[in-house]
Design a protein around this nucleic acid. Structure first.
Lengths: 187, 187
DNA sequence: TTTGCGAACAAACAATCGTTCGTATGAGTA
DNA sequence: TACTCATACGAACGATTGTTTGTTCGCAAA
């Protein structure tokens, strides 16, 4: 049970550095001090590794937003919780998040379409929060889609260079991010 | 002279869709209705294509910020011009920008270090504008580096889905982006 | 001790990779 | 007409790709 997780973590590190297509099965094997053929005692295809990584990260995001939506607080509080969670994810597991964000297009076509669908649904739920905020006339008159994408995008740099600027700790970054985004979109 | 540009444009389209390592020379040749060996009448290596694309985009950004810095206007006005330019680039040539942003790490090591250096210098100049803004006490008390990265990152989604939301035209997006970023970072 | 099984291995597979070589074509110039 | 030169091509190269096969090792249960 332990070795499979080590395999995923090792592979994720390589995927992060060189990208999925440029990372060979032999690279992964070498990093684990194994011979290439030995990997196939634990996995069926190379693609399986990428699928697992993406699926795991996607599930975490889905669980998080589901929990936020289940809480009966104001849309503004919901949005704050979502931002906190995104920052926290980039803080706790930057490697997986990077792979998730950069390599998803290399999923095999069947899993790719499922993945795109799941992402759409996630964005739809986030969009629902923004819509509720808009109904209370708290939003600037900018297209919802613009706000959604810009908000998500503005947090995407974190996982690339987090450790360097985490001196202040997670909560400080969460605070800064909330200020930046909320001042940007709220009236 | 025309065919080389067509080659770069065709290759960039493939690099955008499948990524540089997953795009074979045979893919590029087929897309140009040529045989693989024929490409080598126009290029020396596959890497040369990526280098040219990245170099071209980098030069455009460098030229733009150089022009902004040469104008004697307030730091705030300079920052506005920079934002406008970034949006404009994503609007005019989303394909090249995507390749530039996603595939630079696959440059051969020598060109890679040059490229990283150029990017550092670009960010340093941008950071200079922010510092000037800070000296006039116009910035929120958030780390400059945080502001810089978040600002750049927030514009990075544009080139991925621009045409769909450009109904309002370039200037409307520029306007929205300026509002979002400036409200987010200014006091 | 015997049996069973997951884990690791060496060797090899067809397929695809980037690239080279020698050659053919065809348009423009002297 | 003869020559040049950029362009395109077929064929092939060694290297690397993901994966399969048959086998061996060591440990745990019976």
């Amino acid at each position: 049970m332990k070795i499979k997780e080590k395999l995923y973590r090792t592979a994720a590190l390589l995927f992060e550095k060189k990208g999925y297509p440029a990372t060979s099965v032999r690279d992964i094997a070498e990093a684990m001090q194994l011979k290439p053929s030995s990997l196939y005692s634990h996995i069926r295809h190379k693609e399986e590794i990428l699928i697992s990584i993406c699926d795991l990260v996607a599930s975490r995001f889905e669980r998080a937003i589901e929990e936020v939506l289940s809480q009966e607080v104001s849309p503004l509080e919901q949005l704050k919780k979502v931002i906190d969670f995104h920052v926290q994810m980039a803080f706790e597991d930057p490697v997986s998040i990077t792979v998730f964000n950069n390599e998803w297009r290399h999923l095999p076509s069947e899993e790719l379409s499922i993945f795109v669908q799941r992402r759409k649904e996630y964005e739809a739920k986030l969009s629902g929060i923004l819509a509720a905020l808009g109904r209370s006339h708290a939003l600037r008159p900018i297209a919802h889609h613009f706000i959604l994408q810009t908000m998500l995008s503005s947090m995407l740099w974190l996982h690339r260079s987090f450790p360097k600027h985490a001196e202040g700790g997670l909560s400080e970054i969460q605070q800064s991010m909330k200020i930046f985004i909320l001042k940007g979109i709220l009236l």
